[in-house]
Nucleic acid binder design. Structure first.
Length: 759
DNA sequence: GTAGGGTTAG
């Protein structure tokens, strides 16, 4: 200071006074700061650490960080205060990374942080979830002996909490001399978020012995902590405990616990809470109403939803959103859409949740085209899709193989930096796989910075859908080497892949490994896979034995797997047994009748074929209308079996005739076993040619450039005749053709199908 | 100069 004093003497009192005044006075004007700056530059006083610090603080106060930084860099000897003014201002302006950068410059100059900078730095680390940096700075503060300071401890505790490091947070907490209810509440909430019920209880009793009374915020923090992390049982338990201890839950408590009540299927408790809410007069709170609607929706009580909605007088976005979700959750997607339209008409303010809920409702209930249309419409309406919207709409793209829409959603996700989100990533992997682009699934997977089990499972199920068993197994091996544990879904993909390509030994090995090494009890879907696996290997009797010995009651999937295996192996006896079971389990499903009839037909048992047809007629049952989708030039086209009203029907028929002639020339005859109609042979052939997958493929041939791949989805299992025709077309027309039926992909190329004719 | 609680979308 002594060296500087003469300099300060040269500075006019007005400027010195301005710089030394408190920040609240600086707001007078930025021009005063620039004036001061100019003067200081002239006098050379700017180089003084103390003066420059004041100047930096002053510029920072006006968010002129560039000027502040410039000064910091131009002075030869900045002090801690020079740096910390900038750090403080940057942190306040939420420019966290920059703040950390300034600190590292300060530290590398050998300047020692003090108890004023440290809390700022810990706040920065908390906001950035920069645990490693935070811990390093913690070490520095210990080495400097500053970790006993109250402010340092408080911010350090907060930093560890925000990074989810409960162990470290607890250690800091234990060293604190004074603990108030605010800090304790934060600790309680942190433990609840981790699902640590025991720790929550322990902290509560510690508080009691220290004479710190938990308040309503403490309790609500516990409830919301458990609820947010999916610890429903614990949330409910603590809610009851709170009530038991005489704390009256307020509107925050009620809206925090209700989602958990709904998820833990405790309608009884939900009704009790409803009664309490009425008694306490909390029904005017919008969050309480939304949460209550959500709870009734999760419990399947549509009437409860409607009643609450009608009773609530104000039209409130959150309440409406909860209604939309509740209705679609219970399959009433049309009603939900109706409501959504009504909200639009009434010029209600629809937010991103409103749009996303409606889109998700559509995609989950077979309204895929509507979902894509809504996604477009929301952007036109100026509502920006977010990290939830994208994974809600992507399944719709996958369902109907709308690759163009899926790709543009991918591009959108890249633009708004969503690729590090596991939900977005998994949904993209699934979408690309279902659109026949398994290579893109792999690319998305490889580029994800962090992956959870859902990502791995999506990739495995994608390859499995494509019949690529080797890939599924090698991904599984890689998965095992991570810290993640495979679950029952991982094994479903593995077993399904093995069964598709006939890897019997591997299938058995994984089936055993699932229980022995991972303690996962086989579910119905695993048994279905095993039945298919054995069936494909021709071991039908073993498959039947397995069904009879399995500890679960076999469902339609298991018997369906057996029936399909019987079709592959031409086994009528077991087919009849399986079919009888299926007729009992799914009396409404015509597919089972058709399958059995195909088996009879293949054996030339025409009387039995007739009797099945009569049975179906007697039950008033019709074959499910076959339906296929194909995307041509950004538009998805739907083709129905036997649809003669199609605008391009003449061209389609002409092309089909051409293909038919070519096929006969090369010795292919139509397989009439799949016709299932009591008509003349020629007519039967025409019926076969009217199958939707053939129509879609031919439609694709006509409307896309030569040589480009075609992609078709079918709502039923692909028929055997279509399979051979499409194989032929792939060679004859020189096209790669992907057909996705109900459970897998057929990749036709050069006259061969990837399934090896087993499906 | 640090520090606590809510609903509805995957």
């Amino acid at each position: 200071m002594t060296k500087v004093l003469p300099l300060i003497e040269k500075i006019p009192q007005t400027i010195l006074g301005f710089l030394e005044s408190s920040p609240s006075c600086w707001s007078s004007s930025l021009s005063k700061t620039t004036q001061a700056h100019a003067h200081l530059l002239k006098s050379g006083a700017q180089n003084d650490g103390y003066i420059s610090a004041k100047l930096i603080a002053s510029y920072s106060n006006y968010s002129c960080f560039d000027d502040a930084n410039l000064i910091l860099q131009s002075i030869p000897d900045p002090n801690v205060y020079s740096f910390s003014s900038l750090i403080y201002a940057l942190t306040k302006a939420k420019l966290y990374s920059q703040s950390l950068g300034v600190f590292s410059r300060m530290f590398s100059r050998g300047l020692i942080p003090d108890t004023h900078v440290l809390p700022n730095l810990f706040k920065v680390c908390a906001e950035l979830s920069a645990f490693r940096a935070g811990r390093q700075i913690h070490c520095v503060s210990c080495a400097l002996g500053l970790d006993g300071d109250g402010f340092v401890q408080g911010s350090l505790f907060h930093m560890y909490m925000r990074c989810g490091k409960m162990g470290d947070a607890r250690k800091v907490f234990d060293r604190m001399r004074e603990r108030d209810v605010v800090t304790c509440s934060a600790l309680l909430c942190g433990y609840a978020r981790k699902g640590c019920l025991e720790e929550v209880v322990r902290v509560l009793s510690e508080m009691e012995s220290e004479g710190i009374e938990p308040n309503v915020v403490s309790w609500n923090g516990i409830l919301s902590g458990f609820n947010r992390s999916g610890y429903h049982k614990e949330a409910v338990e603590m809610f009851q405990k709170m009530h038991h201890l005489g704390f009256l839950p307020d509107e925050v408590a009620v809206s925090s616990v209700l989602p958990s009540v709904g998820d833990s299927e405790r309608l009884d408790l939900g009704r009790q809470v409803h009664g309490y809410v009425v008694k306490q007069g909390l029904l005017k709170d919008k969050c309480v109403i939304s949460a209550m609607i959500d709870m009734y929706g999760k419990s399947g009580r549509v009437y409860g939803i409607i009643k609450l909605f009608e009773e609530f007088e104000v039209m409130e976005t959150g309440v409406c959103n909860a209604c939309i979700t509740g209705l679609s959750r219970n399959g009433l997607v049309d009603k939900a859409l109706e409501m959504f339209e009504l909200f639009k008409e009434q010029k209600m303010e629809l937010n991103v949740v409103s749009w996303t809920s409606t889109i998700a409702g559509c995609a989950q209930n077979g309204k895929d085209i509507e979902a894509l249309e809504l996604f477009r419409e929301m952007q036109v309406a100026g509502v920006k899709p977010n990290r939830v919207t994208i994974p809600s709409m992507l399944p719709a793209c996958g369902n109907i193989a709308a690759l163009v829409h899926g790709r543009s959603a991918h591009a959108f996700a890249v633009r708004i930096h969503l690729l590090d989100d596991v939900h977005v990533g998994s949904a993209l992997i699934d979408m690309y796989a279902k659109c026949g682009r398994i290579n893109m699934s792999q690319v998305v997977f490889d580029m994800m910075p962090t992956k959870n089990l859902v990502c791995w499972n999506s990739l495995m199920s994608g390859y499995s859908m494509h019949g690529k068993a080797k890939e599924v197994m090698s991904i599984f091996e890689s998965l095992v080497r991570t810290r993640l544990k495979p679950d029952f879904i991982s094994f479903t993909s593995l077993l399904s892949a093995c069964s598709q390509v006939g890897l019997t030994d591997e299938g058995w090995r994984y089936f055993g490994m699932m229980t022995d090494e991972y303690g996962i009890k086989p579910r119905l879907e695993h048994y279905s896979c095993m039945v298919s696996l054995l069936g494909r290997a021709g071991k039908l009797q073993e498959a039947y034995d397995m069904i009879q010995e399995m500890p679960l009651e076999p469902d339609s999937c298991v018997w369906g797997a057996l029936l399909n295996s019987c079709r592959l192996q031409n086994n009528v006896e077991l087919a009849e047994i399986a079919a009888e079971k299926l007729f009992g389990l799914e009396p409404e499903n015509p597919g089972n009748y058709v399958l059995l009839s195909n088996i009879y037909a293949a054996k030339g048992m025409w009387e039995e074929v007739d009797s099945i047809r009569n049975k179906m007629e007697g039950l008033g049952m019709k074959k499910n209308p076959g339906c296929s989708w194909i995307q041509v030039k950004n538009k998805v086209y739907t083709l129905l079996a036997g649809d003669k009203s199609h605008p391009q029907i003449d061209q389609i028929t002409e092309k089909m005739d051409e293909i038919s002639k070519e096929m006969r020339k090369s010795g292919h005859l139509p397989n009439l076993d799949f016709a299932l109609q009591d008509v003349e042979e020629q007519e039967q052939e025409q019926i076969l040619w009217g199958h939707s997958e053939k129509l879609a493929v031919v439609f694709g041939l006509l409307n896309t450039p030569e040589g480009t791949p075609l992609q078709v989805i079918k709502n039923l299992r692909i028929c055997g005749d279509c399979h051979s025709v499409i194989k032929f077309i792939s060679g004859y027309a020189g096209r790669e053709i992907f057909v996705r039926d109900t459970n897998r992909f057929h990749h036709f190329k050069d006259g061969v199908c990837s399934c090896g004719d087993f499906w």
